[in-house]
Amino acid sequence: MGSGLVRLGLLASALLLAGLVATLTGCSKVEPPAPELLAQARGDQCVEPTDLMRRDHMNILMHERDEAKRYGRRNPDHSFVGCIDCHVSPTASRDEPATHFCLACHEFNAVRMDCFQCHTDRPSDAPPRQRADLDRSIDQYLSTQAAGPTPVMEIATP
């Protein structure tokens, strides 16, 4: 039994090692973000000192996130929307990280974050860029369909 376990362990570690090597060889060299692509911050000064923000912006966002979300205690100075509105260029896009204040740095430092899967990646005043055929509300869409969804099957009513 002992030797079986050892062999099973060896197999598992070999697989892990192979995966690691494959991942590392897949990595390419990352260029630092070019500052000229990033828009200038629009306010005079950030809400907190720069060195503090560099070090702790994630903690500020994380702590106040729960306060704001769960208890409605919002702090406009530390709001996520505020960061985006001030720092991100209206023409930036999450798909081109080099143009995006947050993503450029995160990409360079290889720190993954998923904020922009839900939060919009652009300031409030950015023009919409949605595809025209999709830029309509559900009732508008359904009104173009004949009388909304058709019943798949009527329910038997006694």
């Binding site: 559900i138 009732d139 359904l142 909304g148 969804p149 019943p151 798949v152 099957m153 009527e154 329910i155 009513t157």
Partner: peptide, 23 residues
């Protein structure tokens, strides 16, 4: 698939597939 009976005794319809068997 069987729709939620939110209003017992009523026929129900909407754009959100209320009252119909879901496909």
């Amino acid at each position: 698939a069987y729709p939620l009976e939110m209003f017992p005794g009523y026929e129900m319809s909407s754009t959100f597939y209320d009252g119909v068997v879901a496909s």
